[in-house]
């Protein structure tokens, strides 16, 4: 089934794609985390306008297919912002989409901190910002790891949507190598899938280590 000779020949191209996938993943993960944290803070804040904005953002971006977001930003974007590299636009689309899920992951983590903790913080006179930053968030950090890990794994897989929009990342090679190796569909698929499995394994491995390190007994 798998032709290892052909696999060796296509490996440089697959590695090029892997590198671009990693870059898409890294940039989007950082931007989405910052934006998602901001949104999560808005969603628990005492200001109604900010809560409303946070909720609307999550509902809009979580229910829009990523492909539609790519159509608006990657295909339509250049009409508005001028000629821009597809990779940059794809990063923007992936970040905006993933931020909604980061926000929800953080929120579900924060909810696992027992209410007594926040009540105790308030009863000794802490305000909203102090309660959140000194008492709740440090405890939420560990509970947040599993949901955030699955968000980043999903992001890693979602970078593949960029292949349909002319970004030559890992999945793109499935088609671009078709001309050179038309008979080797299974080989190409296996070679490409291997690298996605590596990314997924690394992310869940890191999550497990962090979870063990930060274990708290309650």
């Amino acid at each position: 089934m798998i032709n290892f000779g052909a696999l060796g020949e296509m490996l440089p191209s697959i590695l090029d794609g892997f590198w671009l996938t990693l870059r898409l993943l890294a940039y989007s993960a950082v931007i989405a985390t910052v934006l998602g944290t901001l949104l999560a803070t808005m969603r628990v804040s005492p200001i109604a306008v900010l809560r409303g904005f946070g909720t609307s953002y999550v509902n809009i971006f979580r229910n829009t297919p990523l492909v539609v977001l790519f159509i608006i930003i990657v295909t339509g974007g250049p009409q508005v912002v001028g000629r821009t590299e597809f990779t940059t636009l794809a990063t923007v689309a992936l970040s905006l989409y993933t931020a909604a899920f980061v926000c929800e992951g953080l929120r579900s983590g924060v909810n696992t901190v027992p209410t007594g903790q926040a009540e105790a913080a308030r009863s000794i006179g802490m305000g909203f910002t102090q309660t959140l930053t000194i008492v709740v968030l440090p405890q939420a950090f560990r509970a947040v790891i599993p949901p955030l890990a699955s968000v980043y794994i999903a992001l890693a897989k979602n970078t593949s949507v960029a292949a349909a929009f002319g970004v030559a990342e890992l999945t793109y090679r499935m088609r671009s190598l078709n001309e050179q190796f038309p008979q080797e569909a299974v080989t190409r698929f296996s070679g490409i899938v291997l690298f996605y499995v590596i990314i997924v394994a690394v992310i869940s491995g890191i999550a497990q280590i962090l979870e063990r390190r930060l274990a708290v007994s309650r």
Binding site: K157, S160, A164, T171, F189, V193
Partner: peptide
């Protein structure tokens, strides 16, 4: 669960 769906569909 680990394979990106768009890659699976293309394959």
């Amino acid at each position: 669960r680990a394979v990106p769906l768009i890659l699976l569909i293309l394959f």
